[in-house]
Design a protein around this nucleic acid. Structure first.
Ligand code: SF4
Ligand code: SF4
Lengths: 141, 141
DNA sequence: TTTTAATGATACCTTTAGGTGTCATTACTG
DNA sequence: CAGTAATGACACCTAAAGGTATCATTAAAA
């Protein structure tokens, strides 16, 4: 019912970096803003790099950047990169294979809300986030 | 994004027992049908007992029964009994306290799908499950 | 060419969810 | 009243998620 911490972190990272996609963000820049433990953030950045969502520049003036054009990355892409759960057709009761001879009533009911959730995640891209969502104003804690 | 195994197990148990709420179900009855590891099921039954969702009868002809009337138990009640996550107003990015000066665009978008999900879970009771959902026909694997 | 500030790699630690194992207790039944 | 089939209690184990520690590498800049 809740995304994993790791997935939420990835969403924070990429949504924040979407604000200015040409900028090079250092791990420290992100740490200051995103409330993610520093070393875990570093690990996570390397992971997103290997997943092809980020590119990095090494050396003193290095940092990270979003790898693709913003409208090519949906929220679902980020979620899928960090969570291998298959959400499509997921059974409300958690059965990996339906044990029933007929579909139960939760099948459709749950299917509806799940699909509207999935639809939101699939259709919202980092470009939408950039235009509408202002994570710019993140205040330091 | 996914309910925990434990929560899914609880939903299976109570939805199944709702089929005939006056019947006394043994752990073995449930084990045969619900694809839950036997000992974990036993543990879970004791837990649901302590949570006040089930009552038990000890001794040779003992078993478990749903504690309240079916329309008094919503799916959300079951979820909340087994998962202490607070879903109301949960931030998409997982911030426990919003660090922004203004609400971001995901706040409302996510709020909508989250609320429709919560609404389904809160309004659907075991009585609805009993009438509409036939977990009766569970086939053994 | 040395220093410095960034990333890269990798191993380890901690907590929690999920799952097991064992034995005690209860109460029906032969 | 002994045997049996159920629940009750509790300790333990395992795997995965989340988090930490350390050192190597890169490249700009003093
Ligand atoms: S019919 Fe019911 S039990 Fe079967 S997959 Fe759908 S939700 Fe799950
Ligand atoms: S405004 Fe955005 S960041 Fe703040 S709580 Fe809402 S979803 Fe989270």
């Amino acid at each position: 019912m809740k995304l994993s911490n790791t997935t939420e972190y990835a969403l924070r990272i990429l949504s924040f970096m979407a604000m200015d996609e040409k900028l090079l963000y250092t791990a420290n820049d992100l740490f200051d803003k995103l409330q993610i433990p520093y070393r875990y953030l570093r690990k996570q950045l390397n992971f997103l790099l290997k997943q092809g969502l980020l590119v990095s520049v090494q050396g003193k003036t290095g940092g990270y950047q979003i790898a693709k054009s913003l409208n090519e990355i949906s929220l679902m892409d980020i979620i899928e990169a960090t969570d291998d759960t298959k959400f499509e057709n997921m059974c409300f009761f958690g059965f990996s294979e339906c044990p029933l001879t007929q579909k139960c009533s939760m099948h459709e009911r749950w299917g509806e809300v799940r699909n509207s959730t999935l639809s939101l995640l699939k259709t919202t891209t980092l470009n939408d986030i950039k235009n509408e969502n202002n994570l710019t104003n993140l205040s330091l804690k």
